[in-house]
């Protein structure tokens, strides 16, 4: 398994209503050990996964939103959020978790992992992928 492939995880579902978001994140974390070229996309209701301020205490299930902040440590730092999906939901990037990573090629400078892209840009990014895992 020496070859490196471009993997993209496409998230299109909201958290908590169904388990897909959480189990998808588990795949991303496990997948990080395989040292592939990984990126994530948040589209449609998937953008709700990375909304700030999630608190699940009163529904009694695990709040997994802090886990997204760990993605940078797993070298998952290409996180694309579709602009049109945000706008359709009345959201901006300020409503989202502040996801950061340390760039080892730039003296470990802290950088934003989230990049808001238009659907046209995301379509091009999707075209470049070799494996698309959708959740």
């Amino acid at each position: 398994m020496s070859d490196i492939k471009k993997f993209m995880y496409v998230n299109r579902k909201a958290p908590y209503g169904t388990i897909y978001a959480w189990e998808s994140l588990e795949v991303v974390l496990i997948g990080a050990a395989f040292e592939q070229e990984v990126s994530m996309a948040f589209v449609d209701d998937g953008v709700y996964q990375i909304l700030k301020g999630q608190d699940t205490t009163e529904i009694g299930v695990k709040n997994f939103s802090p886990t997204y902040s760990a993605l940078g440590d797993y070298d998952v730092n290409k996180i694309y959020v579709e602009k049109e999906s945000l706008e359709e939901r009345g959201l901006t990037v300020d409503d989202l978790l502040d996801l950061k990573y340390e760039d080892e090629d730039d003296d470990w400078a802290e950088k934003d992992s989230i990049k808001v892209v238009t659907s046209k840009e995301l379509a091009e990014i999707l075209e470049q992928q070799e494996v698309v895992l959708s959740f």
């Binding site: 299109r12 379509a123 091009e124 999707l126």
Partner: peptide
């Protein structure tokens, strides 16, 4: 899904 796909398919 169809609408989103048509928006994001090249």
């Amino acid at each position: 899904s169809l609408q989103s796909c048509l928006r994001l398919a090249a």
